[in-house]
């Protein structure tokens, strides 16, 4: 049933990774992404991957579960690999036949691209697997709170995320019911070209929108009845607290990044920034 979809696919076990403060985990993710992008050496990349595996082990989430995140990319990944393999022509030519040329640079680049994507997606999914959407939202709100100085609506953003998370299953279920109601009236959603199919969606989208607006109105009334008046003066059921383990986690991650920087002997700041930018662009030197 659509109802059973759990968003962010939280994996409910108790582990060090689960107990870390959500803010720590968000910071760790950002640091991890930085590490993935600045690493230029394929062997050092092995260290990053090993680190990822270690974190997975510590989270007590089954490895296969973490790897599920890659499933939606099962077409993209081979495609990226092949494109890079054939398009990049640096280093030694290993093989050449008509318009196909494979070079050492190409292999390295193709491997890098794929590994980077896998590392990023699994890292991010590790965050959502070990953190409930609620505490993730809380962590984000807290991390963004300093930005209130520049009028950044941190509380409102978090509230919107919470409501969205709350209502997505409800709306999916409703969409399913509406679709069935219209199918029962002989709606044809399958045949015809794209234009026809889009038009056939109208009888489903309109009730869905109308109902969503009504829901939003009723929810606003219910929230007002419960004295909601914005983020000002609000207290929290759960107060986030940094603990020793949070400090350790950040220290260890910092050490990893330092290691990468030192070993790549790009000690100058310029070099690191350059690596990062190049990494982002997917260009390998």
């Amino acid at each position: 049933m659509l109802k059973d979809i759990t968003l962010g696919q939280y994996f409910p076990v108790d582990s060090v990774a689960h107990r870390l403060d959500p803010r720590t985990k968000l910071i760790l993710l950002i640091m991890y992404i930085t590490a993935v992008f600045i690493v230029r050496d394929i062997w050092l990349f092995g260290v990053v991957i090993a680190f990822m595996l270690l974190m997975t082990a510590m989270s007590r989430v089954p490895f296969s579960y973490v790897m599920k995140a890659i499933k939606p990319m099962r077409i993209l990944l081979p495609l990226m690999f092949i494109l890079n393999l054939f398009m990049i022509r640096t280093g030694t030519v290993l093989f050449s036949w008509r318009f196909i040329t494979i070079t050492t640079g190409g292999i390295k680049q193709a491997l890098f691209i794929v590994l980077r994507l896998v590392a990023l997606v699994t890292g991010a999914s590790l965050l959502t697997l070990t953190t409930t959407p609620v505490s993730l939202t809380e962590g984000l709100e807290k991390l963004l709170t300093p930005l209130k100085i520049i009028k950044f609506p941190a509380h409102e953003l978090a509230m919107m995320m919470t409501i969205a998370l709350r209502f997505i299953p409800t709306l999916l279920e409703e969409a399913d019911k509406i679709m069935k109601a219209q199918l029962a009236r002989g709606a044809d959603l399958e045949s015809g070209n794209i234009f026809k199919k889009t038009k056939a969606m109208v009888p489903i989208l309109i009730p869905l929108f109308v109902n969503s607006f009504r829901r939003a109105e009723e929810l606003a009334l219910a929230m007002e009845s419960r004295c909601y008046h914005g983020g000002e003066g609000r207290t929290k059921l759960k107060v986030l607290k940094f603990r020793m383990r949070d400090l350790w986690a950040i220290l260890i991650m910092s050490a990893l990044i330092a290691l990468i920087i030192v070993l790549q002997s790009t000690l100058s700041i310029d070099g690191v920034i350059a690596s990062f930018v190049l990494g982002l662009l997917g260009i390998d030197r």
């Binding site: 109601a181 002989g186 009888p203 009730p207 009504r214």
Partner: peptide
């Protein structure tokens, strides 16, 4: 088989009552 769901809000969508009622017969 005609199927009536619990809440009318699941099926009403067209501009007018007349057009909305005509949706089923038209699909036929």
């Amino acid at each position: 088989v005609g199927m009536v769901f619990q809440y009318p809000d699941y099926q009403l969508f067209d501009e007018t009552v007349y057009k909305d009622i005509s949706f089923g017969p038209r699909n036929m």
